[in-house]
Computed example of a mutant assay.
Amino acid sequence: MDYSEDQNYQSDDDYNNTDYELIGPCSHQNNQSVEQVVGPYVHSIICILGFVGNSLVIVTYAFYKRTKSMTDVYLLNVAVADLLLVASLPLIVYNELSAWSMGPVACKLLRGSYSVNLYSGMLLLACISTDRYIAIVQARRSFRLRSLSYSRLICAVVWAAAFLLSVPTFYFYNWYEPTHSIDAFMEEDEANRTAGPPQYVCEFQFLDNTTAWRTKVAVPGTQLAVGFFLPLLVMVFCYSAIIATLLRARNFQRHKAVRVVLAVVVVFVVCHLPYNLTLFYDTTTMFQLHSCEESDLLQTAKTVTQTVAYLHCCLNPVLYAFVGVKFRNHFRKIFLDLWCLGKRHIAPRRFSRVTSKIYVSTQRSVDRSSENGSSFTM
């Protein structure tokens, strides 16, 4: 959240003079240089990888694997949330690099949907952790607690909670033309407006200072509490108990399962901890006076760490879906079907019988391996 209050303030000695030197908002040149690289290039790679990975998860569940367990329902909803997140990211980045040209409705919808998908994705990761805890640690109770009806109800509650948490974003984000409140810059602003089309932004807009203060603290504070610390605490508790249970089990696959658990926690912390620490520092020092150099450094840190946090959308399909043996077998079916379909189009008469036999045999082998396979993702 970039606001115009980050300005270069004069020292007390300067105010003792009779002439006051007014300085405009900080330019944040270093942050703009980083955004010119991160925005069009790094974010494009993240969007492509996240779109492909999460789309494959959704296609697999839609055509090859029915949602038979609570974990399947959670994984499908996580893929939907991540897919919507990476789909809205290019539009937001494009409009941040230039003036917002999509109008007020798109401003509210994109910003609001981004917040909804962020909260829902993080809360669903906490649900997956709880589901795995019940399946492994509380195995005797898992049959009663892990049902499709419960999972669908929990997912509905998660999406409703994410929407309610995003109501301030929907309400306070507006499409407007920013203006300086200093009278000395009015003539220069008028000249700039007449020189070209008006430059609109999609940012928070408030009618009074009290609402601005409360919202600027409440929105990032809620994101920190619900969107990071709550899932982190749930994951640490659940996966610690899971690791202790797996280490006591006499299973040759326990070491692999422990590595998967550690990878899930480490990737989550590495991706989200830097940005949330930066956001926490920005929130606690929001109403303190900063120099332009400090403000520029903080904005650059937020840009870089937020990009690292976006990487988690690309890694979720690998960590939660593709690691499982059963899911990999269904995923392999997609390529087998595509290969058979391509062979039929290339040489339909010559290879029709051969490819059909190969497809049937491979499909049976995959089905048998999927029935016998087991993994930590269950």
Score class of each variant (00 low, 15 high):
residue 1 M to D: 10
residue 3 Y to F: 14
residue 5 E to I: 09
residue 6 D to I: 04
residue 8 N to K: 00
residue 11 S to H: 07
residue 19 D to Y: 10
residue 29 Q to V: 15
residue 30 N to P: 09
residue 33 S to N: 15
residue 37 V to W: 10
residue 39 G to L: 06
residue 39 G to E: 11
residue 40 P to D: 03
residue 41 Y to H: 07
residue 45 I to W: 08
residue 48 I to E: 04
residue 55 S to D: 14
residue 57 V to M: 05
residue 59 V to G: 04
residue 65 K to T: 03
residue 69 S to W: 06
residue 77 N to L: 03
residue 78 V to I: 15
residue 79 A to D: 06
residue 80 V to Q: 09
residue 82 D to L: 01
residue 86 V to A: 01
residue 88 S to I: 10
residue 89 L to A: 04
residue 93 V to D: 07
residue 95 N to T: 10
residue 103 G to Y: 02
residue 105 V to Y: 05
residue 108 K to H: 12
residue 109 L to F: 12
residue 109 L to D: 11
residue 119 Y to I: 04
residue 124 L to N: 09
residue 129 S to H: 04
residue 132 R to C: 06
residue 135 A to P: 08
residue 136 I to F: 03
residue 136 I to D: 06
residue 139 A to V: 04
residue 140 R to P: 01
residue 142 S to D: 02
residue 143 F to M: 09
residue 144 R to I: 12
residue 146 R to P: 15
residue 156 A to E: 01
residue 160 A to I: 08
residue 161 A to T: 14
residue 162 A to Y: 04
residue 167 V to C: 03
residue 169 T to L: 13
residue 169 T to K: 08
residue 170 F to W: 04
residue 177 E to R: 05
residue 179 T to M: 07
residue 192 N to E: 13
residue 194 T to N: 12
residue 216 K to L: 15
residue 221 G to V: 05
residue 228 F to C: 10
residue 229 F to V: 15
residue 232 L to R: 07
residue 234 V to K: 02
residue 234 V to N: 10
residue 243 I to G: 06
residue 243 I to F: 00
residue 248 R to S: 11
residue 250 R to Y: 09
residue 251 N to Y: 00
residue 254 R to W: 05
residue 257 A to V: 01
residue 258 V to G: 07
residue 261 V to R: 06
residue 262 L to Q: 12
residue 263 A to T: 12
residue 264 V to H: 11
residue 266 V to M: 13
residue 267 V to N: 04
residue 269 V to G: 11
residue 270 V to S: 11
residue 271 C to D: 02
residue 271 C to A: 07
residue 274 P to T: 02
residue 276 N to S: 06
residue 279 L to W: 02
residue 284 T to M: 14
residue 292 C to L: 00
residue 295 S to N: 12
residue 295 S to L: 08
residue 296 D to F: 01
residue 304 V to W: 01
residue 304 V to E: 04
residue 306 Q to P: 08
residue 309 A to D: 00
residue 314 C to A: 07
residue 316 N to G: 13
residue 326 K to N: 15
residue 333 K to S: 13
residue 336 L to R: 00
residue 337 D to R: 03
residue 339 W to M: 03
residue 341 L to A: 10
residue 342 G to A: 14
residue 343 K to M: 04
residue 344 R to E: 13
residue 344 R to M: 14
residue 346 I to H: 07
residue 355 T to Y: 14
residue 355 T to G: 14
residue 361 S to M: 11
residue 363 Q to A: 09
residue 364 R to Y: 11
residue 366 V to W: 05
residue 369 S to M: 11
residue 377 T to V: 13
